[in-house]
């Protein structure tokens, strides 16, 4: 055990970044920093890095994320005001020191230890359910059938709030989605993406974000080949091609509740990533203003 511990001392610190306003570009600079590793899910992370200002409205979401890190866990607030009273604060360009210090500490849960719905001891077998589909077994109800928009098989619909800190969606964007299988059948925008600095709209970072979703690095030679992986005639291919050529893309997407249904999860994530962050934010704000 002590051998393992001494070996583990030099390990990279896995960090999950919850990105707030203006945090997108700074977090990108951390990707190649030695000693840190940005991970896609809090389950893999040791430290929760809150980068950029997060709305108070998203404080609960942030606390949920915090709870999902395995213990010991820690928080670092980087250029962000604290939303709860834990963790280190980092203000400069480099949060590495703060992350290292935080990685020595442990923080308790922010959320109360309650199941989503009461269930224990309820029902004939005490698992919270009655009959085949009723009740809230193990704290959650079961999915129920709903109409489908594509092949007409009315199977179960999965309704959930996705975001605001999902790594494959623009930071801050929270979507209320109904999925059947991996196809989105209904979508609503619960919160628009955070405003990001102008540098986030530059072709390079935009292309890199999209290529990362496709599983390859940002080198231009590979990026050309990656175009073939996208469906022909889709706007995604045109926009990625423009970014790879170093041109800006100023298209504004259609409102998401119209554009997302009918896409599968992969296609939807790629489609969202194929717009500049500011344009996506504009598309989400417009219907609210109207």
């Amino acid at each position: 055990m002590s051998l393992l511990a001494s070996l583990a001392r030099g390990a990279e610190i896995p960090v999950f970044a919850a990105i707030g306003a203006g945090g997108l570009a700074p977090v990108e600079t951390l990707r190649r920093r030695p000693g840190l590793r940005l991970v896609d899910t809090p389950r893999h992370a040791r430290v929760l890095l809150v980068a950029g200002e997060v709305d108070a409205a998203h404080a609960t979401a942030l606390e949920r994320l915090h709870a999902q890190l395995a213990r010991p866990r820690a928080t670092v607030w980087w250029r962000a005001p604290r939303l709860f009273d834990r963790g280190e604060i980092a203000d400069g360009d480099d949060p590495t020191g703060a992350i290292r210090r935080a990685a020595e500490t442990d923080e308790p849960d922010q959320r109360p230890d309650l199941p989503p719905h009461p269930w224990e001891g309820i029902g004939p077998h005490g698992q919270g359910g009655m009959g085949m589909m009723g009740g809230t077994p193990y704290g959650r109800p079961m999915a129920m059938t709903a109409e489908d928009i594509r092949d007409g098989l009315a199977l179960d619909a999965y309704r959930a709030r996705f975001g605001p800190f999902l790594p494959m969606l623009p930071p801050g964007l929270a979507l209320d989605l109904t999925l059947q299988g991996d196809v989105i059948v209904a979508a609503g925008v619960a919160a628009p993406p955070y405003p990001q600095g102008a540098e986030s709209d530059a072709p390079g970072p935009c292309a890199a974000r999209m290529l990362r979703l496709m599983g390859i690095g940002p080198r231009a030679a590979r990026a050309r080949g990656a175009l073939a992986a996208l469906p022909r005639g889709s706007g995604m291919r045109r926009r990625l091609a423009a970014w790879v050529d170093g041109a800006r893309v100023d298209e504004t997407p259609r409102p998401l509740p119209d554009a997302l249904p009918g896409r599968d999860w992969t296609g939807a994530a790629l489609w969202l990533a194929s717009f500049a962050p500011s344009r996506l934010r504009a598309a989400c704000l417009k219907p609210e203003a109207a």
Binding site: G123, H125, Q127, G129, M130, M132, M133, P137, M142
Partner: peptide, 10 residues
């Protein structure tokens, strides 16, 4: 199948 994971005994 309803309840495909057997979350409710059936």
């Amino acid at each position: 199948m309803m309840n495909p994971a057997g979350l409710n005994p059936m």
